[in-house]
C-alpha cells in the first residue's frame, strides 16, 4: 500500500533549512510519498541529498525526488519584480515537490510537462503477469 502525504508549504515555512530537511526525510523514512506544496531552495535540495546519503543503510536506500514547477512567461520588468518580491516574502509556494523512498519509487521520469512515477511494487506485479 502506498501512502501519500501532502505537506502544505505553511508547515515548513517557519522552519530553518535543517529542520525542513529533517521533517521531510523523516516522513520519507516512514515509507510515505511526500507531496510538498512548492519547492525547496536549490541549496536545501542539495542538503537533502547530502542528508539522505548520511542516512542510507540496509533498509533505507535513498530517495527519489522530482519538482514540478510552472514555467512563467515573465516578459516585463514589473512582472519579474513582482514575482521575486512574492518569492522573497512568501517563499517558493508554487509548484509541487514529490519525494519518496527509493524502495517504493523505482523511478520518476519527467518530461517538461508530465511526470511518470514508477512504483517498485507495480514493476514486480507487471513482471509476474508476464
Amino acid at each position: 500500500m502506498l501512502t501519500l502525504q501532502f505537506v502544505p508549504y505553511h508547515e515548513i515555512e517557519s522552519l530553518v533549512s535543517e529542520d525542513r530537511i529533517k521533517k521531510l526525510l523523516g516522513l520519507v523514512k516512514e515509507n510515505k510519498i511526500v507531496l510538498l506544496q512548492g519547492r525547496l531552495k536549490f541549496i536545501e535540495e542539495t542538503k537533502l541529498i547530502e542528508s539522505t546519503m548520511e542516512e542510507i543503510n540496509a533498509t533505507f536506500r535513498g530517495i527519489e525526488i522530482c519538482t514540478i514547477y510552472p514555467k512563467k512567461r515573465t516578459n516585463t520588468f514589473y512582472e519579474i519584480l513582482k514575482n521575486e518580491l512574492v518569492k522573497t516574502l512568501l517563499g517558493e509556494r508554487e509548484g509541487l515537490t514529490i519525494i519518496g523512498p527509493a524502495t517504493l519509487i523505482k523511478e520518476i521520469k519527467r518530461d517538461p510537462n508530465k511526470v511518470l512515477l514508477l512504483a517498485t511494487e507495480m514493476v514486480k506485479k507487471t513482471k509476474k503477469k508476464r
Binding site: F42, E45, T46, I49, T67, I108, K109, R110, D111, P112
Partner: peptide, 17 residues
C-alpha cells in the same frame, strides 16, 4: 539519457545560486 532529472536540475541550480 533524459536530462530532466532532479539531480541535474539541483546541481545546476545550486551552482547558479
Amino acid at each position: 539519457l533524459n536530462p530532466y532529472s532532479q539531480v541535474n536540475i539541483t546541481i545546476i541550480g545550486n551552482l547558479a545560486a
